[in-house]
């Protein structure tokens, strides 16, 4: 008798909780995979396709499905590190097959050579190229992500990828070298020296 009560009680409990869980899974259903958005926000959004996916979002989805995290050259080591932290996996070196990490670049059209074919405009994923058919085109430098996609379609090869030079506003200090031989060469950064500062009090 007690055995039966116990079983009944457990079954009743199981049903109640099952119903609650079932309801909750419908009522509080999460649309889409939230991890995809988190991954997507870590990617550099150049939409360059070097990872072999047609944009950053698709790659984010692929990563969420188990794709490797080292296929994004524009993001480089920092992005890999951030992704590894987010996903709790070991960071891997950048897959050289998809390109190498390089300095930030911006596309520049040599305007006297442009024939106004609009091919680069169609290729630009962020609408950073201005122009019309048979009119000279130009790149809005502040909108350019340096994705390189406009270079290939150009029939007259008049687009250059120019590294962005640091300005006084964007410049920042280099990392001090920690190796022995370069310390003297890198001493520009170092102002205070033992002699100059005097004896510590």
């Amino acid at each position: 008798m007690t055995l039966l009560t116990a079983i009944l009680a457990l079954v009743a409990l199981a049903l109640v909780f099952g119903a609650i869980l079932g309801f909750a899974s419908i009522r509080f259903k999460v649309e889409g995979n939230p991890i995809v958005d988190q991954i997507d926000s870590l990617l550099p959004q150049t939409q360059c396709g070097q990872c072999s996916y047609p944009g950053c979002k698709p790659y984010a989805e692929a990563i969420a499905d188990g794709e490797k995290i080292n296929k994004c050259p524009p993001g480089g080591e920092n992005t890999i590190q951030a992704l590894a932290d987010l996903l709790g996996v070991e960071p891997e070196p950048l897959d050289a097959e998809h390109g190498e990490e390089s300095v930030t670049k911006v596309a520049v059209i040599r305007e006297d050579e442009c024939i106004g074919c609009t091919k680069c405009i169609q290729a630009c994923p962020v609408d950073a190229i201005l122009g019309a058919a048979k009119q000279m085109h130009t790149v809005i430098a502040s909108e350019c992500t340096g994705c390189d996609l406009c270079v290939e379609p150009c029939p007259v090869d008049c687009i250059d990828m120019v590294p962005v030079a640091p300005t006084v506003q964007t410049w920042s200090w280099e990392q001090p070298s920690t190796t022995a031989d370069s310390i003297a060469a890198k001493n520009d950064n170092l102002i205070i020296t033992d002699k100059g500062r005097g004896a510590a009090a």
Binding site: S41, P44, G55, C56, N78, P125, V126, T145
Partner: peptide
Amino acid sequence: RQEEQAHIKSEHAKMRF
């Protein structure tokens, strides 16, 4: 600071894309 700038820029690029 650079990372922050890059993040702002990538958000902007995403929006435009």
